[in-house]
């Protein structure tokens, strides 16, 4: 599709509530250089969310939506969990189906969109929690990587089952006392980034959402590499402040602590050679495009 399609019929425009006018007028659909800085003004992202106040997941959502290269041609696949409370408010088609089969749904969806629209890049992005990605859905997560399905998997890692009240998950750290781990979790946090790399992902990133520019770059890399090269995986630490006993304002500090040296979420990136080549060429293209735009702006209009 093109952004031109997201328009209101003139004859009925005056009865449409303001939020839809904003959606059309100030959306960054079609803008190649959209990014996290647009979150204050672009209402195609999320206007309101229904997560707990101060939840880092809500800000992660906004960064991700702002960083998508082509939201007008992106379809999300979500899974059961807190994220599914946000999806109805997002101006991108999104599918919620079952718990754990998000990567299976995305596999069928991506292949179909590729076959129906061979000349358009339709991006499919999976966005699910750690329970869905690692526990109940691990086989489907990994099998989609084995099969080299060309879409991006994003895992919101809050190290527990937040939506059901804080139960142990595979991505929980060892020793953490939680529901269903009354004596503390007795095995290590699953090393999903390493698994992703070994399972065939062309690009893997592990980070927190404390720094928006980093999130933006990682999401752009992941989506663009998924188009051309193969599966990509991004694991974002979005602590559940409620379940780890923190206050609304303490989410950012928690993320900063965990990403400092020796922490669980020191930023890691794995880029395959082919993916790196692609990123390099994109970098050059972007540079040239911006330079040309700058020069065009310098020239007098009637020249």
């Amino acid at each position: 599709m093109s952004k031109e399609k997201i328009q209101i019929c003139e004859d009925l425009a005056d009865i449409m509530p303001p939020e839809y006018h904003k959606l059309v007028e100030s959306a960054t659909f079609g803008n190649q250089d959209r990014g996290w800085k647009d979150i204050g003004s672009s209402t195609e992202l999320i206007e309101q969310h229904s997560l707990c106040a101060g939840c880092p997941e809500s800000i992660a959502f906004r960064y991700i939506l702002a960083s998508l290269p082509a939201p007008e041609d992106t379809v999300f696949v979500g899974s059961t969990g807190c994220t599914s409370l946000v999806f109805p408010h997002v101006a991108v088609h999104n599918i919620h189906s079952l718990f754990g089969n998000q990567n299976a749904i995305a596999s069928g969806l991506k292949r179909t969109l590729k076959s129906r629209f061979p000349d358009v890049e339709k991006d499919v992005v999976v966005l699910a929690g750690d329970g869905a990605t690692v526990d109940i859905g691990l086989d489907m997560t990994m099998q989609s990587w084995f099969r080299q399905e060309k879409f991006t998997t994003i895992c919101f890692d809050n190290e527990l089952y937040a939506n059901t009240g804080g139960q142990e998950s595979g991505l929980m750290q060892k020793g953490f006392v939680a529901k269903m781990a009354p004596k503390g979790k007795n095995f290590e946090k699953v090393r999903l980034p390493e698994i992703a790399r070994e399972a065939g992902c062309a690009y893997v990133a592990l980070l927190t959402v404390s720094k928006p520019n980093r999130v933006e770059q990682v999401i752009k890399n992941a989506v663009l590499i998924a188009r051309e090269v193969g599966p990509t995986f991004v694991q974002l630490y979005t602590p559940c402040i409620l379940e780890i006993g923190k206050q609304s304002m303490e989410g950012l500090d928690e993320m900063k602590d965990s990403e400092s040296i020796g922490g669980r979420f020191v930023q890691k990136e794995y880029i395959s050679d082919e993916a790196q080549k692609l990123l390099d060429s994109i970098k050059i293209e972007t540079k040239e495009r911006k330079k040309a735009a700058k020069e065009a702006a310098k020239k007098p209009v009637n020249a």
């Binding site: 599918i95 299976a104 749904i105 069928g108 179909t112 489907m140 099998q143």
Partner: peptide
């Protein structure tokens, strides 16, 4: 998984 993959294709 297959039924999920079918669902994805049908959604698309």
């Amino acid at each position: 998984a297959v039924m999920g993959q079918c669902a994805g294709a049908s959604f698309g």
